[in-house]
Design a protein around this nucleic acid. Structure first.
Length: 628
RNA sequence: GGGCCUGUAGCUCAGCAUGGAUAGAGUGCUGGACUUCUAAUCCAGUGGUCAAGGGAUCGAAGCCCUUCGGGCCCGCCA
């Protein structure tokens, strides 16, 4: 009987009593109380029935309460009617606590079978391989990685893809820079290759096009060569993008993200999938050859409203637009096409998951990375395009398939942080731009944070050796960044401020990690762990009850966040758990408790907390440090 | 012009899907708690016309409509 069972138990009993009393069936709720004073569960049935019965909500609640009191069952110790009309319940703590403590010892605690193991594709990261990841990309990676972890916990069979756009204009730019722009092919000593390509080559070459038309000419030539894929230039491009990708992935792994497969755009292009899909679109009447007007000679997808433009698929010169690359890829992800790829092992990641890459050569392994539901994490500036793709896909009418664009608002730079890039924004925040060099690199943020967390860790743990301190510093730095990127809603802009992000107090990742470390230390000092099967009725302070109830809510939070694809729910849950624990820690002695039995009961509570918070933090991809 | 998102405490945000009790956190500011299981902590105080107006409802921060402010998107670029 975790909180879910408690609330559901109360609900079914109220439903039964209501029916017994001859009341009409209404879809009432039993939820947690909004305030401690009201007890542990609230029911709104009085409000809903008052219309039908023409009685006051509190009178109706009273009638149900009286019946409920005849048989409170295992879960409830008190039923109260609030003058406002709510029906409130106080839990039978000795039973509730026992059940929470018992279930929280299950290694799979918190899992909830929402997905029935259904194959689900999740694509995120997908950064052009011509630059280092900046703080805006980090939001995408963290949202995607966290959603993946949550969906797995909710029993979806998740396949995580990272789409590598290795044949586009942005890649052409750095190739032009390296081949014709006078840039060395190796970075200065000590600089990562992705940083070199992005910070030095990309930014300056794009600034030079206007002054140097001969470079701009080279760009179109290089782009064409990349797409055709046979020339020396294409071979060089492949080398360069793979080197950049490798460096980008190091940053992703540093952040704790992992993937199942790398999908190379160049291969999608060369696989011939587009031709297949295009023919299908023609025969289904989705693609339409425009005869007149400004789009004459183009294949278009007609819009259904006059306010919206038709979308061009194939230009009048016969060359497909980028959307023509996205449509077959979307179809491929949904498993609507014969898979032209084989798969090659790219790397074994730190969580032991194998990362595969697509190959058109017949030397790989046949695998399945498709799903019935495809979730693509892309920022909401691309909402319109994603909507078009969704519409086209739904035109194929494949039952049971769904294509979801998970959008999120962008990360902007605070006026202060913009100023450090020599950008005066007049007090407004600044949109980041890779091309203009307006961004803050992810590695840089982690490094600066790492210095800060290292100092703190050393101050608090002078006896720890260097490797231990470095490890803690990195865990806390990543925790701070991941939490900051996930704690608010997807549709809120994050204004990134470097100095603010160095604050490690309050509603932050380190706060939560600290609570974990505190729990670990209590358990460490206690030595042997006692059996946890009785004596929980001794946990009688509000601090203990609150903590236990928070622990008991884990699976409800997993369900909620998985259903709504809302990672922040787990972030908020971790914070709530930690607040309950820290308050408990300050007010209740564990090792110095009055009796041996009470020490035992509290140790069990602390252990349940540690286990549950550890699992919840894992969903956020945040390491739980033993000390900090 | 059209579309999407957003507006809640000085600042950053929960709560809105599924209406219900005195609207909550963090941060800031003021004060208090370390010879104690780690003070990256805790406790107290401070701080609100839930953008504005209207509507439906017994009841609205939440639902509907209108207006205003802010952001983003609308290429034979990707």
């Amino acid at each position: 009987m975790t909180m879910r069972l408690f609330l559901e138990g109360v609900k079914s009993k109220v439903r039964e009593i209501s029916a017994d009393l001859g009341y009409p069936a209404v879809s009432f709720e039993v939820t947690e109380t909004s305030k401690q004073d009201f007890g542990d569960a609230s029911c709104n049935i009085g409000f809903l029935l008052s219309k039908h019965l023409k009685k006051r909500p509190s009178d109706i609640a009273q009638s149900i309460a009286e019946r409920y009191k005849d048989d409170m069952g295992m879960m409830v110790s008190e039923v109260n009617v609030h003058p406002s009309g709510y029906l409130n319940f106080v839990a039978n703590y000795s039973n509730l606590l026992k059940s929470i403590m018992t279930s929280s010892q299950d290694p799979n605690y918190g899992s909830f079978d929402l997905g029935k193991n259904s194959p689900t594709v999740l694509e995120h990261t997908s950064v052009n391989p011509n630059k280092a990841l900046h703080i805006g990309h980090v939001r995408n990676i963290i949202i995607g990685d966290t959603i993946g972890r949550i969906l797995r916990k909710a029993n979806y069979d998740v396949r995580v893809l990272n789409y590598v756009d290795d044949s586009g204009l942005q890649v052409a730019d750095i190739i032009v820079g390296l081949l014709y722009g006078g840039f060395a092919k190796e970075p200065p000593k000590g600089q990562k290759f992705d940083h070199y390509c992005g910070d030095m080559v990309y930014v300056s070459i794009t600034a030079r096009y206007e002054q140097e038309p001969q470079l701009a000419e080279k760009r179109s030539i290089v782009l064409k060569e990349l797409e055709e894929g046979k020339s020396e230039t294409a071979k060089f491009g492949d080398e360069i993008t793979r080197r950049v990708l490798e460096e980008q992935l190091k940053t992703c792994w540093r952040l704790g993200a992992t993937y199942d497969c790398l999908n190379f755009e160049s291969q999608i292009v060369r696989s011939g999938l587009w031709k297949l899909v295009f023919e299908r679109m023609k025969s289904m009447g989705i693609a339409y050859l425009e005869k007149e007007g400004k789009n004459a000679g183009c294949w278009v997808v007609k819009s259904d409203s006059e306010d919206e433009e038709d979308k061009i698929l194939v230009r009048s010169n016969g060359i497909a637009t980028y959307i023509a690359k996205d449509i077959p890829y979307a179809c491929w992800k949904l498993g609507m096409l014969d898979d032209p790829f084989q798969y090659r092992q790219y790397y074994v990641q730190r969580d032991k998951r194998v990362l595969w890459e697509t190959t058109l050569e017949k030397t790989g392994t046949k695998l399945d990375f498709t799903g019935d539901r495809v979730i693509t994490v892309i920022d909401s500036r691309q909402a319109r395009l994603q909507k078009i793709i969704t519409k086209i896909i739904s035109g194929f009418q494949s039952p049971g398939k769904s294509y979801v664009h998970l959008g999120y608002e962008s990360v902007t730079l605070s006026p202060g942080t913009a100023k450090t890039l020599n950008l005066d924004t007049g007090g407004k925040s600044a949109q980041m731009s890779g091309r203009k060099g307006i961004y803050v690199n992810a590695d840089y943020v982690l490094d600066i944070l790492g210095v800060r967390t290292y100092e703190e860790a050393k101050k608090r743990n002078p006896e720890l050796d260097e490797p231990a301190l470095v490890k803690i510093a990195e865990q806390v730095a990543v925790g701070a960044l991941r939490y900051a990127m996930i704690k608010q809603d997807l549709d809120k802009i994050i204004m990134f401020d470097m100095s603010e992000s160095l604050s490690l107090e309050g509603d932050t990742g380190p706060y939560i990690q600290y609570a974990y470390a505190r729990a670990v230390r209590i358990l460490e000092k206690a030595g042997v762990m006692p059996d946890c099967d009785h004596g929980f009725e001794m946990l009688s302070t509000p601090y203990e009850k609150n903590l236990a109830k928070a622990i008991g809510k884990f699976d409800m939070q997993v369900e909620d966040s998985a259903k709504n694809l809302s990672p922040k729910i787990i972030a908020r849950y971790c914070y709530e758990l930690s607040v309950s624990f820290n308050s408990f820690y300050e007010h209740v002695k564990v090792l110095g408790a009055e009796s041996e039995a009470l020490v035992t009961a509290r140790l069990c509570l602390v252990r349940s907390f540690r286990e549950t918070l550890g699992k919840a933090l894992f969903l956020l991809g945040i390491d739980a440090p033993e000390r900090m």
